[in-house]
Amino acid sequence: MSEFKLSCEAAREVEEICEKFHNDPGELISILHETQSKLGYLPEPVQRIIAGKLGIAPQKVYGVVTFYSFFTMTPKGRIPISVCLGTACYVRGADKLLEEFKRVLNIDVGETTPDGKFSLDCLRCVGACGLAPVATVGDKVYGRLNPSDIKKIVAEYAD
């Protein structure tokens, strides 16, 4: 985490987001949402900037970031992959999909491939339960998946 260098530009951006929300600690979650959607993740230096702007302890920001699963302190891959582990997908074999993604990408849940291309996560219900089991790759939703489809899907994203 400490090797993360915050560019002046990024720091300025974070400050502007805080100001947009009037540096109001009550808006912390909205600020974190917007910051994460700009920077992709919420590393410690960013949390410190936000804490400074809102006049609250950095531990408090950290406490909130780690409480909510939507917030992440590690960068995602350029193409984030998420396997739905909602109940509908689970009973239709989502666990096997996840195993196959792990095998094909050779990473575990929460990790990113060494080239920074793919990251693998789980999520709970995409709202496409009719298509269960479901996985999302980037913005695209893939439904009615079989473990045997996974290799092909990953190959679609070859450079």
Partner: peptide, 13 residues
């Protein structure tokens, strides 16, 4: 009568 609505976002908990 006056009324207005704002949206607040959850973050997966």
């Amino acid at each position: 009568f006056s009324f207005d609505i704002e949206i607040r976002y959850g973050a997966g908990a």
